[in-house]
Amino acid sequence: MNQKYFYTDNINPIILHLGPIKMYWYGLMYYISFLFIYHIIINKNNKILFYHKINKKNLENLLYYGFINTIIGGRLGYEFIYNAKIFFKNPLILFEIWRGGMSFHGGMIGAIIYILYFSKKNNYNFFSITNLIVPLIPIGLGAGRIGNFINGELWGRVTYNIPWAVIFPNSYDEDKLFIKTYPKWKTIFNTYGALPRHPSQIYEFILEGIILFIILNSIKKKNNNNISAIFLINYSLIRIIVEIFRQPDIQIGFFYNTFTLGQILSIPMLLSGIIILYKYNK
């Protein structure tokens, strides 16, 4: 194999140092996505204040605290679901968000809990609020996947038959275990220091970020009240498909040698979307 076919992802995850403070690309991606979403909702589409009968102050609170609860839920979800053994040994790892480790499903639960509280407190319809927010969720999803790629984490499965395969130096330890089972890869491993893999973060950026954004906002133009259900259905299907190319977390592995935890967690989302869509179209 010729090395020119492989891109090596060795981007420095740290943007700059300010004394003891380090600024990470991963955190910056989420911050930029929040500012972008805030700008669109607050400054670019004032009609929603009238349409959803929500004042600007309440809308700002929804965005700020909804974002915070999403981050908290995402971190808790990742540590409890994917990384429980390490988390209980070192609970402070929960605050190390620059290292990555965000569970979308955990983040969604955190956001839902806050929206339920917000809706009840201010006497808003729950789905009126979710229909307002979900068309912009792909912005955060896409930004997060770019952060994952820069961090060199959540890489895809081993491959050599695609010209855009990527060498992730951080996969070194996992690759050593891989070649014990598949020794034919040893030469490639010794040549590149790691194995070529699918850049599944970029696949997710395209599908969860760009494609899902286009789908949801095309529907939004038609004032479709089913947009929350359509988000659940489409995200779940995209996640189930993209997990085919994504390497499951080493501490979790496959279920029944076939399914990943991400696929399993997406099934309740898919069913929920179908039920909501059916209920509101009876």
Rank of each mutant, 00 (worst) to 15 (best):
M1C: 06
N2K: 14
K4S: 15
K4Q: 10
F6K: 10
D9W: 00
I11R: 02
N12P: 03
P13S: 11
K22Q: 11
M23A: 12
M23G: 00
W25D: 05
L28M: 15
Y30P: 04
Y30L: 10
F34T: 06
F34Y: 15
H39Q: 04
N46S: 10
K47N: 07
I48P: 03
Y51W: 06
N55W: 07
E60Y: 07
N61A: 08
L63K: 01
Y65E: 05
Y65R: 02
F67R: 04
G74V: 03
L76F: 15
G77F: 01
Y78N: 09
Y78K: 04
E79S: 08
E79W: 02
E79K: 08
A84T: 14
K85C: 08
K85M: 11
I86E: 15
F88V: 15
K89G: 13
N90R: 09
P91A: 12
L92M: 07
I93S: 11
L94S: 05
L94W: 01
E96S: 13
I97Q: 12
W98M: 11
R99W: 03
G106Y: 07
G110E: 03
I115C: 05
F118M: 08
S119W: 10
S119P: 05
N131R: 09
I133L: 15
P135S: 10
I137T: 13
L141S: 09
A143W: 01
E153S: 07
W155N: 00
G156V: 00
V158M: 05
V158H: 00
V158D: 00
V158A: 02
Y160I: 10
A165H: 10
V166P: 03
V166W: 00
V166S: 06
N170W: 04
S171R: 00
Y172I: 15
D173V: 11
F178N: 01
T181M: 09
K186S: 15
K186Y: 12
F189P: 02
N190W: 04
Y192S: 05
G193S: 04
R197K: 15
Q201L: 07
F205R: 04
I206F: 14
L207D: 02
I210D: 09
I210G: 06
K222N: 15
N223P: 05
N223W: 09
N226T: 15
I227S: 10
I233E: 13
I241G: 07
E243Q: 05
Q247T: 01
G253W: 05
N257T: 09
G262F: 01
S272Q: 01
Y280R: 14
